[in-house]
Amino acid sequence: MDIFLQQMVNGLTIGSLYALVALGYTMVYGVMRLINFAHGDLVAFSAFIGLSVYAQIFGESVTSLIAVITVFVFTAAIVAFVGVLLERLAYRPLRTAPRLSAVVSALGAGLVIQNSVMLIWGPNMKIFPSNLFPATIWEIGGIVITFTQVMILGLSSVLMVGLYFFIHQTKIGTAIRAVAIDQDAAKLMGINVNRIVMIIFIIGSSLGAVAGLFIGTYYRGVTFDMGWMYGLNAFVAAIMGGIGNIPGAMLGGLLLGLFNAMITGYISTQWAETFTFVLLIAILVFRPTGILGETVAEKV
């Protein structure tokens, strides 16, 4: 039972990270029908930016709420800018091209980001400062919860709920949904599609940046090529939930995090990825468009 609850906490933590990254994939897909393969590398990039921001502003050993907030805000802003730049340079010129051309462009962009990180920060693993968050640990009924885990769970929940209300309650949110349903019609209704796409990339990249920083604080070690692994898991989560569907990405992320934690806790770490993809394929066999994805009949 202890293992179960402990793995549940760990799983939800990882799941929240997947969900944050998955939201970036799913929002871009929803509006542009593009799998943004560079998104995972952007997440890795965020972790390194966070490290540099922290070192630049605070030296090496400051722990304070202000330091943490500053790092998060600066990193999110820089990564959001890079995300918007990415869209401008690599995706916008291909909006009317065959869909797979944009996918290749995204793969190329991923290579560019990943290798830039390697050239700037070097090929070796970098270690996150241990004092970004207090080392407080709670023990409740035999399970251990760290301060970092609480922060991850808390902040991701706030961000996800916030995003949900943003999409469903605000004017911009309505415009985003309109563009997702029919870009041409939205354009005719006076919606500036380019602006919506920009907003999508700002939100998606910022969420990815938060996830990248959390990955750094949670696992401590970060490498230039880690984006692939997190990106793939988050992408799988988005597909499981039904790509293009925002609650689906959250659900998929949490589900995948929990499932992974249970598999590694009870069965095996060697076969973890195999289990992940067996689950994914099983879901797709029974629900071809994911758990919350809608089955849209093509109009004839």
Partner: peptide
Amino acid sequence: RYLVFGVAMILTMILRPR
């Protein structure tokens, strides 16, 4: 090498989408 390579992939697709 791979940095240039990535840029080349993007440019190829923009200039020759097919």
